[in-house]
Design a protein around this nucleic acid. Structure first.
Length: 157
DNA sequence: GCCAACGTTGGC
DNA sequence: GCCAACGTTGGC
């Protein structure tokens, strides 16, 4: 079992939006970065744990837990000229972009902010999220980092 | 809103 | 294959 962190702008699709989705799940479309795609396509497995992260908002940070609910399959929004994430170079016969389904598990007891996570740069060394200039929207999380971050949930910020 | 960091594109 | 130009991400 692997662990992941996925980013979403709460104005676009928040943890509550996921929670309120039918069957509390959705397809994670719109990823248009090769490294992120490769993680989804090659390494994500059903049941993997996901830290749900809110980006580009007042206090960016981890707000919930989700899980991978499917293997990767073609991201059909890349073929839709009316879609925001349309990619004319993605051929339906040879799709360039993939996605997985994501299922809501729960919210974290509190928001674990990026600023707080950065204070533990020693414990979280190697976590892509806190590396400078990081822009990946799908990234792996080592089990020891997963455990450490969830341990923070019980602490005062 | 600013801007640093990064990924992608395309001319050469 | 190099690299300048450009577009995007995302913290602040």
């Amino acid at each position: 079992m692997n662990y992941w962190l996925i980013k979403s702008e709460p104005d676009e699709f928040s943890i509550d939006d996921l929670k309120n989705s039918p069957k509390r799940r959705t397809h994670w479309d719109g990823v248009r970065n090769y490294q992120a795609r490769n993680f989804m396509r090659d390494d994500m497995r059903k049941g993997d744990g996901i830290l749900y992260y809110h980006s580009n908002c007042e206090t960016p940070g981890i707000v919930g837990i989700a899980e991978v609910a499917s293997e990767a399959y073609p991201d059909h929004t890349a073929f839709d000229a009316n879609d925001k994430h349309f990619d004319p170079k993605s051929d339906p016969d040879n799709p360039r972009w993939m996605m997985v389904d994501v299922r809501y598990k729960r919210k974290t007891r509190r928001l674990i902010s990026l600023a707080e996570l950065k204070q533990y740069d020693r414990e979280l060394e190697g976590l892509a999220l806190i590396r400078r200039g990081n822009r990946l929207s799908v990234m792996p999380v080592a089990k020891k980092h997963w455990d450490f971050i969830l341990g923070l949930e019980e602490k005062k910020p």
